[in-house]
Nucleic acid binder design. Structure first.
Lengths: 199, 199
DNA sequence: GTCTATACGGTGATAGAC
DNA sequence: GTCTATCACCGTATAGAC
């Protein structure tokens, strides 16, 4: 039982993920959502830009929450990230290589056209990066180093999603998961009595 | 002095990079290229799909050649990749965060709609990956390992381009370059009599 | 090979009845 | 809050003269 407003946002998310921003029409959203067309501009007076921005933020919120939940399952951030990406790979396969959120595709399209949408995408990306970073910091990594590692994780993750989509295989994501696990080491781990390091 | 055909392809490349596939109109291509509209369907009887496919392949060819040229400048593949990405970062800044080729954005959009365009993108990606891989193999890395490393390089590179575009900063690309240089090591380096190094 | 005119559907958006 | 009708414009694609 979802409201008309929420139903519009929901269906917009899936259409965006499949087709992107310019290719997704308002008529299509109306038709797929079953919402009355008259309601569209009632709930979203700023039109398409507003609908898409809200859809990005909405799906981003879910995405960040899910990421945090997954990361919390392992105390070791590297293992947690590995598991997260492997799980994502499975999900991408299930969904036939639409990752289940409109972020990647909308971000790249809207960057040159709509500042409002672009801003929404940046916000979500920043939250995702922060989630990775906090996880690493909580395990004893220095903040600046965690920042760099989180950036790389995010960048390669987005690239992996892109390649998985184009090749219609989750292999790039799985390969990425393994590589990050091997290379995402802490160069300044917390000091312990037994295993001290002297750089 | 370029032919009408080539001029159409050329301007299509830049429009695609800026706006993507659905957002780029045939009328716009005609207008920007200065080509006569009548010529469009004379040179490209299959319409938009054909124009875009050819544009992707054309820009891909240039991209691969440029990559190979850059990689050839350093004997060490890791250093070569580092320099390449750093140079790309500069270029992305100059071009105001349009990377100068339509691949990243078109690939992700067309994945779900046009198989013909999707195929063109896959072809270019495979060539790019092969260029990275061959460079690593030529420096003594095992083929299977070079394959994995090349995949990761490509994936994170695409993600870096995406983030640079969204944030309107080349920082993600530069951070990526540094990280890859630190982590893209050969786990099975070629054996030499002494510890030789070629500066 | 090029040009003009045009077909026909879809687009985002609005107005006004209910 | 919802619905219908309608707007002006844009999209791709084609036809036929030159």
């Amino acid at each position: 039982m979802t409201s008309t407003h929420d139903q519009i946002i929901l269906v917009t998310c899936t259409l965006l993920e499949k087709q992107g921003y310019p290719a997704t029409g308002l008529n299509e959203i109306v038709k797929e959502s079953g919402a009355p067309k008259g309601s569209l501009y009632y709930y979203f007076p700023d039109g398409k830009e507003q609908i898409v921005s809200e859809a990005v933020l909405f799906s981003g919120k879910i995405l960040v929450e899910r990421l945090q939940t997954e990361l919390a399952k392992h105390s070791d951030p590297i293992q947690a990230i590995y598991e997260y990406i492997m799980r994502l790979a499975g999900k991408v396969e299930e969904m036939q290589f639409a990752a289940g959120n409109p972020l990647t595709i909308v971000a790249i399209e809207a960057a040159g056209s709509s500042e409002r949408i672009s801003q929404a995408c940046r916000e979500v990306y920043s939250q995702l990066q922060a989630a990775f970073q906090e996880k690493m910091v909580s395990a004893g990594m220095a903040v600046s180093e965690a920042d760099e590692r989180a950036r790389l994780t995010l960048a390669s993750l987005e690239g992996g999603i892109l390649l998985s989509r184009v090749y219609r295989t989750a292999d790039p994501l799985r390969a990425l998961a393994g590589h990050l696990r091997d290379t995402l080491q802490n160069s300044n781990p917390p000091q312990t009595e037994s295993a001290e390091r002297h750089p």
